[in-house]
Nucleic acid binder design. Sequence first.
DNA 1: CACCGAACGTA
DNA 2: CGTACGTTCGGTGC
Length: 936
Amino acid sequence: MTESRSQADDMTRGTLLVVDGHSLAFRAFFALPVDNFSTADGQATNAVWGFAKMLAQVIDTEKPDHIAVAFDVKGGTFRSELLPEYKGTREAAPEDLLTQLPLIQRMLTALGVTYIEKPGYEGDDVIGTLASMGDAAGYRTLVLSGDRDAFQLVSDTVTVLYPGHHFKDLRHMTPAAVEEKYHVTPAQYPDLAALRGEQSDNIPGVPGVGDGFAAKWINQYGGLDGIVEHADEIGGKKGEALRAHLDQVLLNRRVNALVRDLDLGVGPDDLTFAGVDAEAAGELFRSLEFGPRTLSKILKTFNGGEKPAMVGRKTQPDGPRRDDALVVPDADTAADAATLTGWAERWIAPVAQPDVWTLTAQGDAKPGESRVERIVLAAGGHALVIPAPAPRDVTDALADVIDRHHGTMAVHGYKEHRHLLAACAADGGDGIDLPYPAIDTKLAGYLVHPDFHADTLEQVAAHFLDLHIDEDDTAAVQGMLDLGDEPAESADPEPDRRLLTHAAIVERLARTLAPMLAERGQDDLMRRIELPVSRVLHGMEQVGAKVDMARLADMKERFAADVRQAQEEAWRHAGEEVNLKSPKQLQKVLFETLALKPTKRTKSGTYTTNAAALQDLYVRYASDERASGFLGALLRHREIIKLEQIVQTLIDATNPRDGRIHTTFEQTVAATGRLSSVDPNLQNIPNRNAMGREIRSAFVPGDGYTALLSCDYSQVELRIMADRSGDEALIEAFRSGTDFHRYVASLVYGVPVDMIDADQRSHVKAMSYGLAYGLSTYGLAQQLKISPSHAEELKAKYFAVFGKVHDYLESLVADARELGYTQTMFGRRRYFPGLNSTNRTVRETAERGALNAPIQGSAADIMKIAMIDADRALRDAGLRSRIILQIHDELVVEVAPGEEEAASRLVADAMEHAVDLSVPLDVSTGLGSDWQLAAH
DNA sequence: CACCGAACGTA
DNA sequence: CGTACGTTCGGTGC
């Protein structure tokens, strides 16, 4: 660890990190809600916590060996004398933030980090001075600051780390980066800032002059001096404005120049990491009510990546060594509560972060009918097997152990384990309500590599741990982790080796994946989104959706009759009993018997018989009675047999004991962050035409409930694009509150809103929706059945109006190419190695994916947050109404009598306020006695 | 019996 | 020659 810190720059003395303390504290304060970060007695802690996290993240990434944090000092500086209104906005910092600054300084001291204040000067001047000193002493200097004035310090040896919209995307402002963004050199940047002014510091610039004009003048005249000299030559309104505000500009320039030669009393060489005062840090963190995990991680970072010494931790000389081959723990069996409690006291209680103990249950986690066979607790080379279901005193003891130690517990599949532990009471009682673990290695693996898929835990181990375990070796009993495999009955009373192997794997996965999450800044994603959403999903799966079986049976009959009729008719026209479900046989009839014009080819080179192609043929051969008769019947058969099949699937999936369908929501399958639904898939119930929608009417409220509530987001993805791109036109389109697509069409075609015809509206609508998929001109033409040139024209007009959307979409791909991955609003990543492929098809597929993933993924993040909030709101209000389904942008709620209004309001509210965007999140709701009637 | 491609349902 | 999924079916090959 320590050598890697200097490895990157063996030409220099090392790396000096200089931090703008106020800027980082501001950033942290506004990034995190005070509500969730306060101590019991009301002290706000969000800025302290965020400061620690952000700083740790930068240290972990950049690995500096010297560090200092600069703060402003209360009271005036030479700047406020020059410019009384200076930083008027900043002085108005909220009380809640101001009280945290001393805490941050205390924390820094405890962590062994030097902080510096200089009365009469700002932190920026301290930073400027340190940067100069660092340069002179041969350091590579990193300046972490959200203040753009710092850009003037940038040089070959000084880089400014400037936070983007998310703190995580720190931009490395090198000379090239400054020049690329502002078209001036770092040394010229203060000239540019003086002309433009600085909104956040309450400094006015020349009205009407932004970065562009300022840069143009600077390049033309060499700098501010030249501009002053030639001010009279600059024409136009902007020239006039410049002359009128010249005094202001020159004043700005004096104010924004950083002092670089202060006497600080210390030099870069003094600024090493002094080492953590673990006791002081521990005490401070406890008083701030930060968890032990936070403490442990922070200590590790500030101790130079070494594991901090754990006081009172038992050493286990015979325990497994992390870098060795996996050691399968020895197992004892707990037949009674006392054994269990004693074992936990001996092996689980001493476990301290970053170590974990593991809980691994074996059984069938099928929602609504889960069974558990064994539960294994394991900690560092020791394991305890608990046969399950178990008697009350054993489950009580187990629940107690888990409750006391879940802060150091790792599980692989929290949601599945909730199902399993809910079924662990032998008397058929409630079982155990599993609290949140420290880490779910299944979710962690998903966040780290969202497109990696494994069927077995051994495959997960091979992927993340490079640990290759022969599955046959351990396959005596199939574990629950082999999804879908029914556990074979084991005659062997010996605890099975595979389960113990799994426990050992999970422990190692936790140790490997936890730091990976931290390094990526994804701890919050795990803790605040994925784990809580797992809990909500568990509840939804457990409850299930009630169906009206009589209604399903009736529908099935009707569809079956229609299918038979369509089949008879098709056979009559074809003259043979062709299997209409066989594309191969259909090809023979269509293109040989009937000799129709061949359609497009499929991937494998055969002629397609898909609905679009059949429809084309149907139109083309309208006058040919035999052909159109066959095609018409075939199309009808296709449509209805699909519906019949869906109805049959629903019937088969209904649990006869409660008349409900318990789907499983997969949380780690979709690479974008969406959920998926399996067994059965309740996210693809027909909704496009009346006949299909009919199926939704079979979903009804269950006993004790009177209605279903459906709430869905309108155009979430487009709203995300509006927010992320900052496109004023699109933002205004959403704020206008009128028919969105009509409004957009009127902008695109330059025609009043009430003159837009149906075609124009639908074309623009298709364009809007296609944006997030990376649609091609050809694809758009195809879909709208217009010529490619016509489609190209539409695209050009569209982007002429929404230019920033265009730039944004391009930037997504460009950024992904540079970073290797995309990121959602909440830091969910997806990797795109294909972006640099030389194979055009591979590359373009990756480009469309990179464009879509952050948008679809951000929408998924938002819905997950809404689900967590809505679930909690319903509970907190004491309602019985509950979420039962999620279909990407829609939530379905089963509503108890009398709760109609409250439930609608709470759920819609949670969805609308899941995040704060620059456009409103619009939610439409409907209530009805079945899912179809709840539509709106 | 396992696997694949075609087809088609959803957002 | 737009993204993300899951399920079913026929057909093929072990």
